[in-house]
Write a protein that binds this DNA or RNA. Structure first.
Ligand SMILES: [Mn+2]
Ligand SMILES: [Mn+2]
Ligand SMILES: [Zn+2]
Ligand SMILES: [Zn+2]
Lengths: 143, 143
DNA sequence: TTATAATTGAAAACTATTATCAATAAGGAC
DNA sequence: GTCCTTATTGATAATAGTTTTCAATTATAA
């Protein structure tokens, strides 16, 4: 289970397993939509009542260092986090419910070399995100 | 000239042409790299000494409403602005000097329909940004 | 069980952005 | 040009989000 594996990795890196960290990891490791620190705090507090918002920030920072989560930029905020994808993947995000899914298999090398040549840049990295509506939200809207 | 055209558009929408607005427009309309409010403020102050940071925020807000500028998300900040592209274009950004250029002609319909089918989403929008090094920075690094 | 040091939450500090407000000045009427 | 109206201004205060500080707590190894 992801939660346990993340806790093991924290431990393996010398971090102690505290109630605050367990509660935060439990939320972030299993979320299907990107969450900001306040959203994590509110969700995790129902598991561990004594949790402080500061510990959420601190734990997110560590999870990001360990590359277990990644920051996601959205139209209405740029500090939301999601479990990190394996390898090079891109995001597909539902504008209705916020559900985020990764996809891979973009093949944009041709585009990149065309643009690189035309503009005289050498390209190192790219961001690609798709926004749309998931089937569940589609149904909810039409039903 | 872009600066004049932007000022005309502000005027056409009933906004008065003030020193503060002129100074901000002059900077933002001619920049080649995305600037955040503080950067605009500092650059524009050399034109109009009395400028207040608040007026930069207010002017940027209006320019965005008039679709003369657009917000750009970067790895180290999400509140930078650039003159808006004509039609649907994407960004190519230099990691060295911040120079931003637009490009068009991505053809990603095949990718979109593949992803849409596989994930059961209907796709409405996409973000694509390329990061790299421009020829000038390349030279500076090697020379 | 005990000792140690990492971790905690509360509070204070900081930063970026927005709202308030009296003074100013742009632009239309004359 | 002068006058009038009111949009706009910059200073200031307020707010929101995030980080730092710090004494108390607690996870962990001895
Ligand atoms: Mn890719
Ligand atoms: Mn496109
Ligand atoms: Zn949805
Ligand atoms: Zn460059």
């Amino acid at each position: 289970m992801t939660t346990q594996s993340w806790l093991s990795q924290l431990k393996a890196h010398g971090y102690r397993l505290t109630n605050a960290r367990k509660a935060v990891v439990e939320i972030v490791a299993t979320t299907t939509s990107a969450l900001n620190p306040l959203q994590v705090y509110e969700a995790a507090k129902s598991t561990y009542q004594g949790l402080g918002l500061v510990s959420v920030y601190r734990t997110l920072e560590k999870l990001e260092e360990l590359e277990l989560i990644q920051r996601v930029h959205l139209p209405d905020g740029c500090n939301a986090y999601l479990p990190q994808a394996d390898g090079h993947q891109h995001l597909l995000i539902c504008e209705g419910c916020g559900k985020a899914e990764y996809f891979e298999g973009d093949n944009m090398e041709a585009l990149f070399s065309k643009v690189a040549g035309k503009h005289g840049f050498s390209i190192h990295e790219h961001w690609l995100q798709l926004f749309g509506v998931c089937s569940q939200c589609e149904l909810a809207a039409s039903g």
